[in-house]
């Protein structure tokens, strides 16, 4: 371990603190900008919403199948997965090609682009800003020792091999902020900001998906549910409770 470096307090006042504050403020700004953009989008297609709701209802039936009597379950199952007019039954040939759907609805692609841009632009700008103003500073020191392997990660932008690895360059401090502030954002901006990224991933994966396919999958799932009533002693229990009440 090399001897301790003496860092100028001006670095603290003009690099470390401003950098962190700017990162937080940019995160907040990004949150509100993306909220603004989301608010201006128009209503989704009612047909898609309807299909989604049907799927949710079928799913909850599947989850709660054991809490209703066999007869009721059969009735509901027939309502959903009837071959002729069940809600989950999709006639063949009517399924819309997702590719065609995407072209017919340019808003979808537009939305995606807006979201991605609101993510990428601030990051690129901040990175450029950090690079331009603060390149080459030793800005911070992490309070625990690390091996040489972390040098590339923590001293990005400094080409000195004799500096102790626990010193962090300003560019790497930017990256540390980028990853570590996620927790803070989830506290100050509410939960939806933290889940934003994962939701975006979900949308990406669900983007090219055929809604009729999900309907079909849900139908198959409902078909293979083994019904087994979980509350066989329910009537006796109700009787006991009522008797106690009468007494």
């Amino acid at each position: 371990m090399a001897e301790d470096l003496v860092l100028d307090t001006a670095i603290r006042d003009w690099v470390l603190i401003p950098l962190s504050v700017v990162m937080v403020l940019i995160g907040v700004l990004r949150y509100f900008v993306s909220k603004l953009m989301k608010g201006s989008s128009q209503l989704p297609d009612p047909k898609i919403v309807k299909e989604g709701q049907v799927i949710i209802r079928a799913r909850s039936l599947r989850a709660g199948a054991n809490y209703i009597p066999a007869k009721s379950f059969r009735a509901r199952k027939a309502y959903y997965s009837n071959e002729e007019n069940g809600l989950l039954h999709v006639p063949k040939g009517q399924a819309q090609n997702p590719q065609a759907q995407m072209f017919s609805d340019p808003n979808m692609a537009m939305d995606m682009m807006k979201k991605n841009l609101s993510m990428i632009i601030p990051q690129t700008l901040t990175f450029a800003w950090v690079n331009f103003f603060f390149s080459g500073f030793v800005a911070a020191k992490i309070p625990f020792p690390l091996t040489q392997r972390f040098r590339a990660m923590l001293q990005n932008g400094i080409d000195l091999s004799t500096v102790d690895v626990s010193y962090v360059s300003s560019r790497s401090w930017y990256f540390l902020n980028l990853f570590g502030l996620r927790g803070l954002f989830s506290l100050i901006l509410g939960e939806e900001n933290a889940t934003d990224d994962t939701q975006r991933m979900m949308q990406m994966s669900g983007f090219g998906m055929d809604p009729s396919k999900t309907l079909g999958a849900e139908k198959d799932g409902l078909d293979i549910v083994q019904h087994e009533w979980a509350l066989p002693k329910f009537e006796q229990r109700a009787e006991a409770v009522l008797r106690k009440l009468v007494k």
Partner: peptide, 17 residues
């Protein structure tokens, strides 16, 4: 991750300069 970040931040501001 949050812990390490804020630990480093507070430690740096108070101790190393």
């Amino acid at each position: 991750m949050s812990f390490v970040l804020f630990w480093t931040f507070a430690y740096d501001i108070v101790h190393i300069f």
